[in-house]
Design a protein around this nucleic acid. Structure first.
Lengths: 340, 340
DNA sequence: AATTATTGCGCAAACGTTTGTTTTTATTGT
DNA sequence: ACAATAAAAACAAACGTTTGCGCAATAATT
């Protein structure tokens, strides 16, 4: 079992000082005018000894960890799992590693995670904040932690974010429903105070108003299957059933499906369904769901980019980015003929 | 901007030595007979200063990182995303953090990841090995890295693993198909030489043999949607179409669904489908898929347990654990009446 | 009163780096 | 030939912990 070698071993074996070895191995050789010959010799003995720098010592000294953190509400939600995958991938390109935290959509766990992760001296953090609190985030940023919110965010705060244009997305979905002749529409929302949710509600309501639809409802309070299930159950109890349901997330849509199935309500025959978020499975559901797809990959790429412009170049300007969503028309929305 | 406080600040403010503070904060107070009063005071000033230990310094000193690594073939696969979520959660209970790596089912990336993660001085690793190579894993273990394989593993190696009992799972699925009257069955496999796949093939073939079914096929070579799609397309070309398809993963099943849909082949009317892996969406597909569900949570819990018995108690015995799968009967398998 | 045991705590080294400063050696200009 | 400058490399401190050992003060025992 080959012992781990360190910079001291290299220094001894090569006959140079620790300092010189360190500088060569860090690419600062030229800056300190270390001769080519020396560089060569040090590099080769490093190779020979199978040297791998001890990141801890390095980080302790420099204060930099080459690590970022990502906190999501739940890795089990495919939407966030996909995000984690993309962000991890992007960070690698900067030679950074990603620590993933799961807040379970609980603000206390979120705070806990932030503390825990901070003790690992992360150089930056990407977060999908789960609550309506932001003080702890602002505080972290003031302490000097580069921070970017994705998906969920807070407007009017000095805190960069990248998200979909939820307003437009919801508006276009609503408009589509209306264009298909729906006049009684229910939307099932997620976490009420989250900005994406508010934007979606706004988009939905504005569309209703713009097209003169007055018979609509907004209910629900979580981006969860259970919420979708319960609210759908309730909607089906109403005297006047909506002809279309707009689910604000793939998880909510799953709950709708469950309830509709239980009650033997056919899509789109009896009721139409449209949802936010994309997921391969949505194509194999019967019928495939019409949806508002978010550019998850782009969101992640841009978020990482912003984060690193802050980490590396200390760019402190606040970036607020909203990306276009895409309406993917499938077969879950019925076209209702207009009586004229 | 509140500066980060360290153990020295606490020492100064509380009036005790660094040593004493360290001991109190590490719960070693009693061992070193530090008075309750002192303990109290130190703890409260630590609280007051908002102290968070610097893990790097700690790890540099102790050589332990309180970090484990998890390498999966792809976080985008819901099966592995779920695993990541569970393992992360379990590790937290030990006060450990999980670094997640994505090998993209490429053995070279896997090796690369292992090196990268090693420089972070991880205390242990859980891996879903993606290839047929294990030398690099054995080498790591010999170097002293606690290692546990999950899902995929290698038999007859001194390498602990936790997985489903894939043989039994496949056998019972096959038996079920046969009991439902199917006499021409096709299975679409995943990565050929992976142990789970081999076990599943064996379970499938044994069941066929045990029940005297001779008309069956085994094809495919990846746990991917594409593989499922292509193989299904091919199956549908055969002169004698199978009456049932057994997909070896949820991703493969997704490919089957795509192909069957394209070809307008109805499930279970025209062909029956059964799959490995569970996923909430499988319930909302039309028809809901009958499947072999794996105890993912248990697999993860046990894997973490084994890993930590190695990390903490240096238990070097090799554990080989296979967990029961569960047949979940839904509506995707047709019962074919026996002609007698 | 002297010895020993116990309690409560601190000294200082060590972990493996990075880096501001300094020292040594080589080169140049006059 | 001699300073002055440039090139090459080394010294030593620092990052924030943990921990083996040691020491003083008090209590218990003779």
């Amino acid at each position: 079992m080959q012992q781990k070698s360190n910079i001291v071993d290299i220094a001894e074996k090569s006959g140079f000082s620790i300092t010189t070895v360190s500088r060569v191995l860090n690419g600062k050789a030229d800056k300190y005018r270390i001769s080519k010959a020396t560089q060569q010799k040090i590099k080769s003995t490093a190779e020979e000894l199978n040297y791998v720098p001890n990141e801890f010592a390095r980080n302790l000294r420099t204060g930099r960890s080459k690590t970022i953190a990502l906190i999501v509400p739940s890795l089990k939600n495919p939407f966030f799992a996909e995000m984690a995958s993309f962000i991890n991938l992007e960070a690698r390109k900067y030679d950074y590693i990603t620590l993933i935290g799961d807040s379970d959509d609980d603000i206390n766990i979120e705070k806990e995670e932030i503390i825990q992760l901070s003790s690992r001296n992360i150089d930056g953090m990407i977060i999908v904040p789960c609550g309506e609190e932001w003080d702890h985030l602002l505080k972290k940023q003031e302490e000097g932690l580069p921070l970017v919110c994705v998906d969920r965010y807070f407007e009017d705060l000095d805190l960069s974010f990248v998200s979909s244009n939820n307003y437009d997305g919801a508006y276009s979905a609503s408009k589509y429903l209306i264009e298909q002749g729906h006049k009684t529409v229910a939307c099932i929302q997620g976490v009420k105070y989250s900005t994406p949710n508010r934007q979606r509600v706004k988009g939905f309501e504005d569309a209703m108003a713009d097209f003169g639809i007055t018979s609509y409802t907004v209910s629900g309070d979580a981006f969860s299957e259970q919420n979708g299930y319960l609210e759908t159950k309730l909607l089906l109890q109403q005297k006047i059933r909506p002809t279309a349901i707009f689910a604000f997330s793939n998880t909510i849509a799953m709950g709708c499906l469950k309830a509709l199935k239980e009650e033997k309500v056919k899509i789109p025959g009896d009721i139409s369904l449209i949802t936010f978020d994309d997921n391969p499975y949505l194509n194999y559901i019967e019928p495939p769901l019409t949806r508002i797809s978010q550019p998850v990959e782009d969101i992640c790429k841009i978020a990482v980019k912003i984060l690193f412009s802050r980490i590396v170049e200390n760019d402190k300007t606040v970036k607020r980015v909203l990306l276009k969503t895409k309406l993917k028309v499938k077969e879950s929305v019925k076209s209702i003929p207009v009586l004229s």
